[in-house]
Design a protein around this nucleic acid. Structure first.
Length: 567
RNA sequence: CGGAGUGUAGCGCAGUCUGGUAGCGCACCUGGUUUGGGACCAGGGGGUCGAAGGUUCGAGUCCUUUCACUCCGACCA
């Protein structure tokens, strides 16, 4: 393509609302255009990159036997009501009615639709396994869209669904998808990590996320310095913590502790390590149909509550903070809450680390009193993993030191089991002639988000640096002085020669000065450029690299071969 | 939804306090000079000042209402 024929509206100035490198450069480079909160138009260059990414995803998936389909964007709400997600998904799900007053949703993900499709067409185990995917727009009415394409409301996603006769075959496919995803992200030139994850609103178990490592990432991931262990903070586990300081010794008793509420105040008062104090966090858990209840989460004073884990532990849709006044209404006192002698009707969940704990201190559920000498056998509570892993904790696999890093979630794969097939009655006849629900897996890739991930990992102060397989063009030809006839003529010849070799080439034939065109080249970020300039008088052109390598002078007779070799 | 802020040309902004002809830079158009790191000269086009209502002889500016967007928080496959 020729620059003069392409719509590439590059900007010198940074749009006010862009803070992230990828957002700034995608806007300035003329890849995308904002149209509303979380809504973007893709301009020609952006569309080219998007198509490249999309094609790589498609190639790799097709190569392992997945089949592409395209589902309707608008979904009848009835399917969502059947699966139980109409409420569970919350306000993020955009709902609306048609002229006949029927309810619909804009698909944020398409488990229901795909199950419905398969249910109508697959009747026998002989048709399984099956892996279907689509690469289509999704809409999620995000509470707070931000960072450009990173968290838009409308975005391009590949969502795949597999159907199996049993758990074992589903796990085989899950592993196959993990390997396929690794190939996709590697081809795109990304540095990433596969981590254990929370399954969130999709449901199911054993999910893994693909995280592109970048400081601007929205997710905190826990990684081991020593081994391959990695997990989203929402799902990370650690080796049980031990405490070096001595446990207190006391018989069970009620102790007067006026105005001593916080863990560190208690720690000072009793001269014991927070490890031996129980922290009780009250939250209001919200359920379907507007139901809610106050739940007490109990953990060691040295630990911190991980809200996602807590939410999962009580099967709630959401946890929100509780005010002191609300606590008082049910007979609880902030600062003096504990797992013993709890007002009736209040649910208590304790962290796994408190199983078999002895000699603990906890609130007495009476104002100004704590219990001492508490052991967990007195507690009638459910145990769950509730804590947020901290930096410095020990790895569950190897005992190595755990640290935090930031990641951009670009892929997420789930072992769903029968989470959707059962309620939606998606069943087939097995080899014994018996009816059974499909065992499913589901696999997502944030295609438009990948553009963000690539730029976040590959940019400098001048602009984008697209990786080889994502770049909108393989090479750019820059005519230094478009009014110099010999330069224009040679550039045109070179352009035609490269095109004849099926190379994606961009010719900057604008009548602009050299510096201007170089700045645009660097902003747009094509990996290589051939500068046709003054050296043409000596039959030489210059090969420049976007990655910072020194330019190379090359004889005009060899330049075509040199470019072919590079790409 | 809570807190903060911003809406004036395609983009970035000034003008609002103290009411009186709608401005600047970039971009765009015409002509000329320039051509290896975002050039220069001259001329030019482009605005319901987010929207509605009010005060006033007169509103971008003052008052009321409303909408949109951004940031922090809660939230998030």
């Amino acid at each position: 393509m020729k620059f003069t024929q392409l719509l590439i509206p590059t900007l010198k100035e940074v749009p006010n609302d862009a803070t992230l490198a990828s957002h700034i450069y995608l806007l300035r480079g003329g890849f995308i255009q904002g149209v509303g909160s979380g809504l973007y138009n893709f301009l020609p260059l952006g569309k080219m990159v998007l198509d490249n990414v999309r094609n790589i995803v498609k190639e790799e998936l097709d190569a392992v036997g997945s089949q592409e389909v395209s589902l309707g964007f608008v979904t009848p709400a009835s399917l969502w009501i059947e699966s139980g997600r109409f409420e569970k998904y919350g306000k993020e799900l955009l709902r609306f009615k048609d002229r006949k007053d029927n309810e619909f949703v804009l698909g944020p993900t398409h488990e229901e639709m795909m199950v419905n499709l398969v249910k109508q067409t697959v009747k026998s185990y002989k048709q399984l396994p099956l892996n279907l995917y689509q690469i289509n727009l999704k809409f999620r009415d995000e509470i707070r869209p931000r960072f450009g394409l990173m968290r838009g409301r409308e975005f391009l996603m590949k969502d795949g669904y597999s159907f199996h006769v049993n758990e074992e075959d589903m796990k085989r496919e899950f592993t196959l998808m993990e390997e396929t995803y690794k190939r996709i992200f590697t081809r795109l030139g990304l540095e990433f990590r596969v981590v254990d994850a929370d399954s969130g609103a999709i449901g199911g178990s054993g999910s893994k996320e693909f995280m592109v490592l970048a400081n601007s990432g929205e997710d905190t991931i826990v990684v081991c310095k020593n081994c391959e262990y990695g997990a989203n903070i929402e799902a990370a586990v650690r080796k049980p913590a031990v405490c070096n300081s001595e446990a207190p010794e006391a018989n069970f008793a009620k102790f007067h502790t006026p105005n001593i509420k916080a863990i560190d105040e208690l720690s000072d008062f009793f001269k014991v390590d927070p490890f031996y104090i129980m922290k009780t966090v009250a939250m209001r858990a919200l359920y379907d149909e507007g139901k809610s209840e106050i739940v007490l989460f109990v953990l060691r004073g040295s630990d911190t509550l991980q809200e996602t884990k807590a939410c999962n532990a009580v099967n709630a849709n959401e946890l929100i903070d509780v005010s002191d006044a609300e606590l008082a209404e049910v007979g609880l006192y902030a600062g003096y809450m504990g797992p013993l002698e709890v007002p009736s009707g209040i649910r208590v969940v304790a962290d796994d680390a408190l199983k078999n704990a002895v000699q603990m201190i906890c609130g007495a559920n009476i104002e100004n009193y704590h219990f001492i000498g508490v052991s967990s056998d007195k507690m009638n509570v459910a145990y769950h993993d509730l804590i947020a892993v901290q930096e410095g904790d020990k790895c569950i696999c190897c005992g190595g030191e755990l640290t935090y890093t930031k990641g951009i979630e670009v892929g997420h794969i789930f072992q769903l089991g029968t989470r959707y097939s059962e309620p939606l009655k998606a069943e087939f006849l097995n080899e014994h002639g018996k009816t059974q629900p499909f065992v499913m897996g589901t696999y997502g890739i944030g295609v438009s988000r990948l553009l963000v991930a690539i730029i976040e990992q590959h940019h400098d102060e001048k602009g984008c640096k697209w990786t080889k397989e994502s770049s909108p063009f393989a090479v750019e030809i820059i005519v230094s002085n478009a009014k110099d006839e010999s330069q224009s003529k040679f550039a045109e010849e070179l352009y035609q020669a490269l095109k004849a070799k099926k190379i994606k080439v961009l010719l900057d034939d604008r009548k602009e000065r050299f510096g201007f065109k170089m700045k645009d080249y660097e902003l747009i970020g094509i990996p290589f450029a051939v500068v046709v300039g003054q050296k043409l008088e000596e039959d030489m052109v210059e090969l420049v690299y976007r990655d910072g390598r020194e330019p190379l002078a090359i004889d005009i007779k060899e330049i075509v071969d040199a470019v072919v070799e590079l790409i």
